[in-house]
Design a protein around this nucleic acid. Structure first.
Length: 437
DNA sequence: TCTGGGGTCCTAGGACCC
DNA sequence: TCTGGGGTCCTAGGACCC
């Protein structure tokens, strides 16, 4: 048995938490650069504001309906997420944090839960709401996919009061009959379309399909989904593994054409990605650089540039990685393109202590600017940098305490992200603490 | 005239998730 | 004028090996 706990309209709920005046008001939260709507409170959903819609298309409508609009405030959401997850971890020995606002709980060998699933699920919900002020839905089922389905029901049908346990056959069948196949975990828009062409539109119709046939037509992944809906667990609790790929990318607030600007942006991404890389004690074997103009524009042709640098010896040294990135950019840069987005991808990732050394390297790798530098010295330097930057947290302008000059001065970069509607970091910055008068 | 069989690795693209 | 960001897994096809 699995339970899925999922926060209701998480980002919007976080914003509301510190603004009691918004209690029953519509709230939406925007993606980076204030681009798209990525979270809506129930009131905003009722107004018909769709998930993922570009903000400029609904801006007037929001104003007209008194919708409170926020830029995304990740410092706040991440901190609230930790509080929710910490609470969940006190309630079950086996927890998988699946995303910023969701967690799976494995209940099968947890007798305290199995005794009375309904009561247990209800207690989880109440405890989280009491500890954090965040409302959640709880779904319980024989497999992860069924728990997801149950969670969907818990949110959709008020009669469930936010808790749904799928523990009897007729009920499961009924729910499947009234639920669209597109709601199933693992069925996206493409599969939904292809299934509809075969006359499969409800979860029930899909669940009674022959799994082998599903495999033939759609592959092994969807076959597993089908089996899971029939109570056969194919997907277990996953442990946290080091990332195999690390990406940092961002759209510009307005277009960039100059190579120096592009270079500063990309070096900024290298710095961020490298911090993530070192945090998981890894090194990367290659680094991809990419930049593109807008895929939406009708006036200009879509252009994307990209290139790769392979390190002879895998590295996690920011300076070496920046040199590589700048070399790639110089190679692939095209003038007269109005770049809208740029970023880097780190790949060929392995653990720091598993590195294959370069057999023909003279002493240490020559790739870093100063060939005489020993690798333990490089690591110490990076460690100090990370330590300083975590101790002296960057402020609103995003500039770290210590950084490589190639990143440029953030305050002078006109293309930096737009976040005009940012709320205070109520829980992570002393100067932003809520004052009650 | 007849041209094997079994395998690995890599990459690009497609699908999905939040 | 303005359209997010970060991931995973699977598959097919090509190159290559013995």
């Amino acid at each position: 048995m699995y339970a899925l706990v999922d926060c209701n309209s998480f980002y919007a709920a976080c914003e509301k938490l510190f603004r009691p005046d918004l209690k029953h008001k519509p709230v939406v939260v925007l993606s980076n650069n204030d681009g798209c709507v990525v979270a809506r409170s129930s009131e905003a959903k009722a107004l018909g504001i769709k998930m993922g819609v570009p903000y400029f298309q609904v801006k007037d409508y929001c104003k007209h309906n008194n919708v409170a609009v926020f830029s995304s405030n990740y410092a706040l959401y991440a901190d609230m997420s930790h509080r929710v997850m910490n609470t969940i971890e006190t309630l079950c020995p086996t927890v998988e944090v699946y995303s910023i606002d969701e967690a799976f709980l494995y209940l099968a060998d947890y007798p305290a839960a199995m005794q009375d699933l309904k009561a247990y699920a209800k207690s989880i919900k109440e405890m989280i709401e009491r500890h954090t002020g965040i409302a959640v839905g709880v779904g319980v089922g024989q497999t992860k996919t069924l728990a997801k389905l149950a969670n969907h029901a818990a949110k959709k049908y008020p009669a469930t009061k936010g808790v749904c346990v799928l523990d009897n056959e007729p009920w499961i069948r009924r729910l499947m009959q009234i639920t669209d196949i597109g709601e199933v975990w693992g069925v996206g828009s493409r599969y939904k379309k292809r299934l509809a062409a075969l006359g499969v539109t409800t979860v029930y119709q899909f669940a009674i399909c022959e799994p082998a046939k599903i495999r033939q037509h759609f592959g092994v992944v969807l076959e597993r989904t089908c089996l899971e809906l029939n109570g056969q667990a194919c997907i277990g609790i996953e442990t946290v593994e080091p990332k195999k790929q690390i990406v940092s990318s961002r759209s510009f607030s307005h277009r960039v054409t100059d190579q120096q600007d592009l270079s500063e942006a990309i070096c900024g991404h290298v710095a961020k990605a490298a911090v993530k890389l070192r945090r998981q004690n890894s090194v990367c074997g290659f680094l991809d650089v990419f930049a593109k103009n807008s895929a939406f524009s009708e006036q200009e042709k879509y252009v994307s540039i990209s290139g790769q640098y392979q390190f002879i010896t895998p590295t996690a040294d920011t300076r070496q990685m920046m040199l590589a990135a700048r070399e790639v950019l110089a190679r692939v840069y095209k003038r007269e393109v109005r770049y809208a987005k740029a970023g880097v991808i780190l790949g060929g990732i392995c653990q720091h202590d598993e590195v294959q050394l370069d057999m023909f390297a003279a002493v240490d790798s020559h790739e870093c600017g100063d060939g005489s530098e020993k690798s333990d010295k490089k690591e110490a330097l990076m460690a100090i940098m990370d330590e300083l930057n975590s101790r002296f947290r960057q402020d609103r302008n995003q500039q770290p305490a210590v950084f490589i000059a190639s990143e440029g001065i953030k305050d002078k970069q006109g293309w930096q992200m737009n976040r005009q509607l940012l709320s205070p970091c109520y829980t992570t910055r002393v100067t932003d603490l809520l004052v009650v008068k």
